[in-house]
Design a protein around this nucleic acid. Structure first.
Lengths: 147, 147
DNA sequence: TTGCATCCCATAAAATCCCATGATATACCA
DNA sequence: TGGTATATCATGGGATTTTATGGGATGCAA
């Protein structure tokens, strides 16, 4: 949960937000990150989340399962473990940073079982886009009052 | 639930009204807050309420669905846990306070499984608007006295 | 030896906890 | 019923702990 902006230093180190860390720590000492398939951002989760995804698709009889299978393979091929150090940081790779156009600061965006890491400006735009979309698709949520 | 006004101090702390707290305490030691999509106010609920919502989204679409991606970003990206301290307060963030234009006092409004936190003046207007709307849609309702 | 990655320590800022106080509501008793 | 004692609540300030972040040391590998 939550959206948090942290700095990325010259070594590529970023602090995993403490709220995130608290949750991860209960289950593991590392996270798994990979390039998002759909957006210019990094995605992260626990390894077990990826395993579960693979299992679900294996047992699925879904018509699209083959396509999903391919996507899953893409993710697995890209994914890498990132242990965090004693101060709670991970060291992101050039490949990931480049994919997300991240230079010296990064935004962590919660997604329930996963999270994303964005370039701050790009996330700002993306968030605006998503909000606009949500309002369009649910007219009942449209703001009514003006101030 | 009641409508209660409490002060917000320089640190962003607000007392969760004791009636609210009593209910929350039975199930958790913290609440989850996020910016209302439709109004200039903060919304709060129990984490399980959000989890349920996320589950509904997950089961209605697949892992790679763009719509699901957007919604989970919207919900979990914005929401944040707010544990209350030993005196029953939570510390609201700048982002939330700004969204609701809350400075030094806040109104808690019960909404069933959720509640909202408003800037007092804005809530006054909003309440008037809701009353007017209710009367318009149900002419049989006579105006009762206001307090 | 040199480059790279990991680990460790230091520090400043921020979030959290703890206690004190005043106010309000509730309970109790004459 | 009135009036006082008691408990609960809201609020303020200060102390303590956690976090984020920078710099440097250490170890491994090419």
């Amino acid at each position: 949960m939550d959206t948090i902006i942290n700095k990325v230093d010259a070594k590529g180190r970023v602090s995993l937000p403490s709220d995130y860390r608290a949750i991860v720590k209960e289950l593991s000492t590392e996270i798994v990150c990979y390039r998002s398939l759909s957006s210019p951002c990094i995605e992260g989760c626990l390894e077990e989340t990826l395993d579960k995804l693979a299992q679900d698709i294996e047992t699925s009889t879904d018509f699209f399962s083959e396509a999903q299978d391919n996507l899953t393979n893409l993710i697995f091929g890209d994914a890498k473990r990132f242990p965090f150090d004693s101060t709670g940081r991970i060291v992101l790779t050039e490949k990931l940073l480049k994919h997300a156009s991240i230079k010296d600061s990064a935004v962590f965006v919660g997604k329930g079982r996963k999270f994303q890491i964005w370039n701050p400006q790009n996330w700002e735009k993306e968030e605006a886009r998503i909000r606009a979309e949500a309002l369009k698709n649910r007219p009942s949520l449209r703001p009514q009052e003006k101030e």
